[in-house]
Design a protein around this nucleic acid. Structure first.
Lengths: 235, 235
DNA sequence: GGCTTATTTGACGTATACATTAAAAAATGC
DNA sequence: GCATTTTTTAATGTATACGTCAAATAAGCC
């Protein structure tokens, strides 16, 4: 994701007009949190954030309520708004949920008849991942990987599921970015993706779910190991 | 849940001191929504709700942000805060997610060694459900059923999972209450619960998950059928 | 010096003021 | 009458004022 995408990032949905200060605060702060520009564990007074964003405290407070509901921050009266760090246990909790929900999404995707356009979009992303692997461009690979999983979710035809997974992904985004460079070459990941997509195209719900679940469980194991090995007890 | 429980309902967690107006607005409004005292589909101006709760617009707006994030309302500038109605499709989406998450919870519960106190608490709830069935007291049965599923969730040792399921349960609470009286005697439900708990105690993760998933899928099917049969296209 | 109590500070919670602007109502033209 | 434009209304978004109260500091005591 490039820098300029910040404001427009999630404005695909409603309110494409003039975003309110509250919306701006919500998206900008969220983006700063998941990209680690507001480091985990740090606290900020409402007035600090307000100054930082060039607005009054009111919209910052409203944004804080939303981000707290999403599990990204904790509002502690008189001690500031705290960017929640993630412990290994937090990671496990979140990944358990993500594994589950994405497994469901894969199954639902397999239950549908995909359109040509959908198939093509996914194939393109798979190709991008393979290209990135060739040149060992981890950032591009991670971006394409993210896109692949997003496309898959969209195929589930369950809007709430999409939104929920996106929200939980935000929470572990920091940790994922940290380990992108640390992990071994994701050759197997690419094979997994191909196999998964084949199962979906074939309409094999059971297999699609199983493959996705196994894929995510491995990813979780790897990421937690990497974080511990490199001494990140909190992220 | 009795009337007086409103304010204390969720204050098991932090802030047990003086709840702020924002917290009060959030819990009271949530409670009024899930109990249908603010009917689905209706819209209220910020000032109406503020008057209703005896406070200014500020805390009402903050509560609205939280409830919107939870999927209970939609904030439409100049058209008021709208209590979101649920279509059959919405119900399906939510139940799919719930089925999935509770299945995971059951599996996780089975993966643990339960304490004597935990076992006892669940057994008591099962007994309550059976007693309620004897006297055909649907409200008590529903309350005990809810408690049973809450206890189960607590056994999952995943706080986020607990909170998430609670949040999605809120969304379908209205519909569930509507069908409590319409559905046939829940004899099978009670048998299901017993079997599920046996699987958990036995540590049979696979079976615990399968039983719970099957149980919820049937419940979803039944509730959607009942709603359609009785002409509730929206709840 | 270490510990308790008084004082001060300033962050927050809430109400309120006010400009903006969408929606509703009224006026105009055909 | 009906459609279009103008005017009016009022709900919202945001800033700000201000009282309250927790935390930090200073003062007092042994």
């Amino acid at each position: 994701m490039k820098a300029g995408d910040v404001q427009e990032a999630r404005d695909t949905r409603a309110s494409a007009k003039q975003p309110s200060q509250t919306q701006r605060a919500t998206t900008v702060l969220r983006d700063m949190i998941v990209s680690n520009r507001l480091p985990a564990g740090a606290s900020y007074l409402e007035s600090e954030l307000a100054d930082m964003l060039g607005m009054s405290r009111t919209p910052v407070r409203e944004a804080a309520m939303v981000l707290e509901a999403q599990g990204l921050v904790e509002v502690r009266p008189r001690r500031g708004i705290r960017i929640l760090p993630l412990s290994a246990q937090d990671m496990r909790e979140i990944y358990q949920i993500l594994t589950e929900l994405e497994g469901l999404a894969a199954e639902q995707a397999a239950a549908r008849k995909l359109t040509k356009a959908e198939v093509k979009a996914v194939e393109r992303t798979l190709a991008e991942m393979e290209a990135a692997l060739e040149t060992d461009d981890r950032e591009s690979w991670a971006a394409a990987d993210k896109r692949f999983h997003q496309l898959l979710l969209a195929l589930s035809a369950n809007r709430r599921l999409e939104a929920l997974v996106e929200s939980y992904n935000d929470q572990v985004h920091r940790a994922r970015m940290l380990t992108v460079r640390l992990r071994p070459s994701p050759v197997k990941s690419n094979r997994d993706h191909r196999a998964l997509f084949e199962a979906i195209k074939a309409g094999d719900r059971r297999r699609a779910r199983a493959l996705h679940t196994a894929h995510r469980k491995e990813a979780m194991k790897l990421i937690i190991e990497l974080l511990q090995k490199h001494g990140f007890h909190q992220v």
